[in-house]
Design a protein around this nucleic acid. Structure first.
Lengths: 165, 165
DNA sequence: TATGTTACTTTCATAATGAAAGTTACTGGA
DNA sequence: TCCAGTAACTTTCATTATGAAAGTAACATA
């Protein structure tokens, strides 16, 4: 009766969540992208118990999002640095930030994204690089990919047809 | 010794995770955005135990992402439909999908996003609507917002300065 | 009357989370 | 040499969260 694994689903969202879906994981990645690397930095920043932090860091290392690196021989000291896979998580954090600011910051935003060249607030949106159109445009929908099998293929094919009307 | 709440943090990412950070929540939202509305649809699609599904649906309704709506008087039957807040979550799902496809689909993508007008694969990226530049551009960074207090303000101010070099 | 459908609830075991305290391997100062 | 301090943890144990299995409610349909 283990927590049910999402990793063997075909859905890329499910597979992502298998790696970062546990309590604390995404906040640790947030801190990493803010430049934190050391155990006690995470501990203080998050207010997380050290045993939990160890579990999460180990998990993120195993998932290939972080690398555990020795930065001192004597005394032996380690730090955690993002891999490319971990850095690639940034867009997810940006969209979570925007969503949080819009819906859960009634007192106003506490964290924003700024363009340091112009000083202006950024307004992050997801667009399709090919067409330049916002992904919210109804022309976009999910579809089965080349590796889709069985239920996944049916599910997304169905969806495509039903929205084609 | 309850699971530690992230909702009283100022960070918008933490506040978002307070609402959708539990196991299954994001996958339920994914299914909602695919058009599912009914209990047994979610149950079958996810392979989730019904008691878990009830807890999550209740939580998402309380968080204002879903609305529970009666669609039949006799027999009494209910469905769950996205609110605006729930629909606004879509960009997060898109970025999770892209990340999952890139890093956890060695056999190739099983789900893709397509432009149904051109038939081409979409390539979703986060850009700043104001400047048009990709958010990965180093000119962008987080900064304390108008409502930032104490530690939050310091943290992001520090960051801004250190990267200004 | 029996079976099926949809949307659940109840009970209970196991896994995940968290608080508190302790450990390791040092450095630097009295 | 002794003691405090630092950084990165581990250990133990209580409490929550998750999940499997079975059951329930309120009907419709045959």
């Amino acid at each position: 009766m283990q927590r049910k694994s999402l990793g063997n689903m075909q859905c890329p969202i499910a597979r992502s969540l298998e790696r970062v879906g546990e309590w604390w994981s995404i906040l640790i990645l947030r801190d990493c992208l803010h430049g934190l690397t050391r155990f006690d930095e995470f501990e203080k920043s998050l207010g997380i118990a050290p045993n939990m932090l160890t579990r999460r860091l180990t998990g993120l290392v195993e998932a290939g999002l972080l690398e555990r690196r020795q930065y001192s021989e004597r005394p032996p000291r380690f730090e955690y640095v993002l891999t490319e896979r971990g850095r690639d998580f940034q867009p997810v954090l940006a969209t979570l930030l925007v969503w949080g600011n819009k819906h859960f910051a009634p007192e106003g935003a506490s964290v924003v994204i700024v363009n340091r060249e112009t000083g202006e607030l950024a307004d992050p949106v997801v667009v399709d690089r090919i067409s330049g159109r916002p992904l919210s445009d109804p022309v976009f929908s999910t579809a089965p990919g080349p590796a889709a099998e069985g239920e996944t293929r049916e599910r997304h094919t169905r969806l495509l047809n039903s929205e084609d009307v």
